[in-house]
């Protein structure tokens, strides 16, 4: 079966000078939750922006490779058209319209062609019942968790087939994160929406993901099933905080030797 999203050997260059990611390839099949892990500057956000069409704003360009979504090439499409194809991004920050009320936030998005808007809006409220209580509240006055809920809900109203979630856990309490993560699983199970989750918090991401990719310095260094990644020694040590004792730099070097290169 063809994957829903296929990124092939993607290379992005900022300002014609700085290469941010190089040769990144990844796939997301229908109904999967895929995690994209990595530290700051690993190229997670750039990958996400390349998919959602927001590169042009930072004077960045896709110089090589391709992005395919349901047999459409996404290269150089303006963001709003990408949304119409069914890819919706929940950004890292500034994720709601602060001066609009909750209801207005949900009615502003443009749904994909053929989507039943009424149903989508009701759906948003069934997934996040708390939002129904806050209908008239100005979004700028919501708490961090409520804001994230609203962001997810308003992304759902767009009727996506692929949901890109940037840093679900950023600035949120562990309890809230866990709750939100369960909602994501629910959304996937009930609506069959594919989810690409970009995270620094590997524990959360790997707990709900089916598969994962680890990015470092603009390259994919590891991929595979969530279970496989979780048990991988390097992941345990560098992302999950396992393995306990400190190691010397010599061992780090060994880690570097052991990782795989793609693309």
């Amino acid at each position: 079966m063809n994957p829903l999203l296929r990124v092939e050997k993607l290379e992005v260059v900022y300002g014609r000078a700085i290469t941010s990611i190089q040769g990144i390839s990844l796939e997301a099949h229908k109904g999967e939750i895929v995690a994209l892990l990595g530290t700051n500057g690993a190229g997670k956000s750039t990958t996400l922006r390349a998919i959602s069409g927001f590169l042009g704003l930072d004077d960045a360009r896709v110089t090589e490779g391709a992005i395919h979504f349901k047999d459409n090439s996404l290269a150089n499409r303006p963001p709003y058209l990408i949304t119409k194809l069914g890819i919706v991004l929940v950004p890292e920050r500034d994720k709601v319209f602060p001066n609009l009320s909750v209801v207005e936030n949900l009615s502003a998005p443009v749904a994909t062609a053929g989507a039943n808007r009424k149903r989508l809006e009701e759906m948003a409220f069934t997934f996040f019942p708390k939002l129904a209580e806050l209908r008239g509240r100005t979004a700028g006055l919501l708490s961090g968790g409520e804001r994230q809920m609203l962001a997810l809900a308003s992304a759902l109203v767009c009727g996506p087939e692929l949901l890109l979630v940037d840093e679900l856990s950023l600035g949120l309490a562990p309890v809230v994160v866990e709750d939100l993560a369960q909602r994501l699983v629910e959304i996937r199970d009930k609506l069959g929406i594919t989810i690409l989750l970009v995270e620094q918090n590997a524990t959360v991401a790997l707990s709900i993901a089916d598969r994962g990719y680890v990015l470092e310095n603009g390259r994919v260094v590891l991929d595979g099933d969530a279970a496989r990644l979780k048990s991988h020694g390097d992941i345990q040590e560098f992302y999950l905080g396992g393995a306990g004792e400190r190691r010397s730099y010599r061992d780090v070097k060994q880690y570097r030797r052991s990782r795989r290169w793609y693309g």
Binding site: P79, A108, C158
Partner: peptide, 21 residues
């Protein structure tokens, strides 16, 4: 009208939500 207000507050997010700026 709501989209217009939305675009004024956060053009980036508006574009992400499928609103043509």
């Amino acid at each position: 009208g709501i989209r217009m207000r939305a675009a004024g507050q956060n053009p980036l997010l508006a574009a992400q939500r499928g609103i043509s700026l």
